[in-house]
Amino acid sequence: METRMSTNLSPPATVADIDDTWLTEALVAAGALPQRSRARVAGSTELGDGSGWMCEVAQLDLDFSGDPGSMPRSVVIKIPVDDAGVREMLASARLYEREGRFFQHAAHQLDDRVPAAHLVIEEPAEGVHVLLIENLEGGRFGDQQAGCNAADAENALRTMAALHARFWESPQLVDFDWLPAINFEGNSMGSDLYRMSIDTFRNKFEDLLDPANALITDTIADHGRRLLDLLAEPPNTLIHFDFRLDNLYFPAAVDPDAAALPVRMIDFQTVSRANPGYDLGYFLTQSLDTEVRRDHEEDLLGIYVEELAAGGVRGYTLEDARFHYRCGALYAWITPVFVMANLDMSNPRALDMWKTVVRRCQAAQIDLDLAELIS
């Protein structure tokens, strides 16, 4: 789905700026709303953190005059924040464009494991990025701070495997010129951000660091490029790159058919081309409580490999998955250090969550002997 504006009306800069006339014309142009029908925003509600630092995300309640066609009464809109400085900082990474292009060119190949897109407007040269997607209802989002049980982790990995299997060594990876390799130049800044953050992190959270992980804490930035190169080695697929519980939507536990329903993914701004290691390492070591990971890690990796095979992947072994998993888990340590060094300390939920993530990472670094990868 691709919609270019065939109107002189300006797209909204903020959720509050959404105009009923613009919305109607955009939906008609996208084929989501029949001609001569009209849409009206009856109300809007901020979702998640509301006006986050990268995007505004809100639920829109809609009314219609005339035939609404396939449009539901409630949708989610996602647009960049109205901050030129933030947009300029993120421009080289093409985060907004990546998510829009994902919905235009890849999402429809994943059945119901992603929200349906009602409207996608991508005009990068003009800085226009608008997503109008399905409002997920009837289930529950994961909670990274709370973690999850082994059954939820298994279902999440089945969805991860479905994503990876669909694009495994696919020619589409070359055709997707909006999909960067995990080791593209923009990602190399991860090591620089770690170097800039580690002293502040130590000053604030020294008590969270295990001395047994000193080699990783002190030198991982020196190995960031090599780790990215390892994660870029074949076999390649389309990875989510932010596969964590807060970005996963689970079937309602009260649903007797819940086991048969897939876990669904949201937030595709960082999709990349890589082997599976980062998604595996990031999810298993940062979203699962340590005891759950320790008790079920091997079984979960085995289920992931089996699901890949069921999706048509051949020749990828459990040993391959273990190695890639360890590489991904090690590189993923950069994220909590950078985030916590720059965290708004007035947000208690975020602070508690990231402290929990750090403790999980520290335990995983010892359990998986991740220092061996850089020693």
Rank of each mutant, 00 (worst) to 15 (best):
76 V>S: 09
16 A>F: 02
60 L>H: 10
16 A>S: 12
96 Y>I: 03
257 D>E: 15
337 V>E: 11
145 Q>M: 12
171 P>A: 09
270 T>S: 13
56 E>L: 09
13 A>W: 05
148 C>L: 04
337 V>P: 00
228 L>M: 14
203 N>P: 02
75 V>P: 00
222 D>Y: 06
369 D>N: 14
89 M>D: 10
234 P>D: 12
161 A>I: 06
39 A>Q: 07
185 E>C: 08
272 S>A: 15
201 F>W: 12
276 P>M: 02
39 A>I: 06
268 F>I: 09
19 D>L: 02
264 R>F: 05
193 L>Y: 12
131 L>T: 01
19 D>N: 14
95 L>I: 13
164 H>D: 15
158 R>Y: 04
165 A>H: 11
231 L>I: 07
231 L>H: 06
222 D>P: 03
62 L>R: 04
214 A>K: 12
331 Y>N: 05
311 G>Y: 05
137 E>P: 00
152 D>G: 05
163 L>H: 04
121 I>A: 03
141 F>I: 03
259 A>G: 14
270 T>A: 11
191 S>G: 15
179 L>I: 10
327 C>E: 09
10 S>R: 13
69 G>I: 07
210 D>K: 06
131 L>N: 02
250 F>V: 05
206 E>L: 11
239 I>D: 00
77 I>Q: 00
175 D>S: 13
61 D>N: 10
360 R>T: 06
23 L>M: 05
81 V>N: 01
295 D>W: 01
240 H>R: 04
231 L>R: 04
27 L>H: 04
224 G>F: 05
217 T>L: 11
45 T>L: 11
305 V>S: 04
355 K>Y: 03
297 E>Y: 15
324 H>D: 11
38 R>Q: 14
26 A>L: 01
331 Y>D: 04
297 E>P: 00
218 D>H: 11
239 I>E: 02
221 A>W: 01
101 R>A: 13
131 L>R: 02
140 R>M: 12
247 N>D: 09
8 N>E: 13
45 T>V: 12
49 D>N: 07
129 H>G: 01
103 F>C: 02
250 F>L: 08
73 R>I: 03
126 E>R: 14
149 N>E: 13
44 S>L: 07
111 D>P: 02
106 A>T: 03
95 L>A: 08
138 G>Q: 11
161 A>C: 09
5 M>Y: 09
248 L>M: 15
14 T>E: 11
95 L>G: 00
330 L>G: 02
162 A>E: 10
175 D>A: 15
346 S>R: 12
138 G>Y: 05
41 V>P: 00
219 T>A: 08
70 S>F: 02
155 N>D: 14
161 A>V: 06
226 R>G: 02
106 A>Q: 03
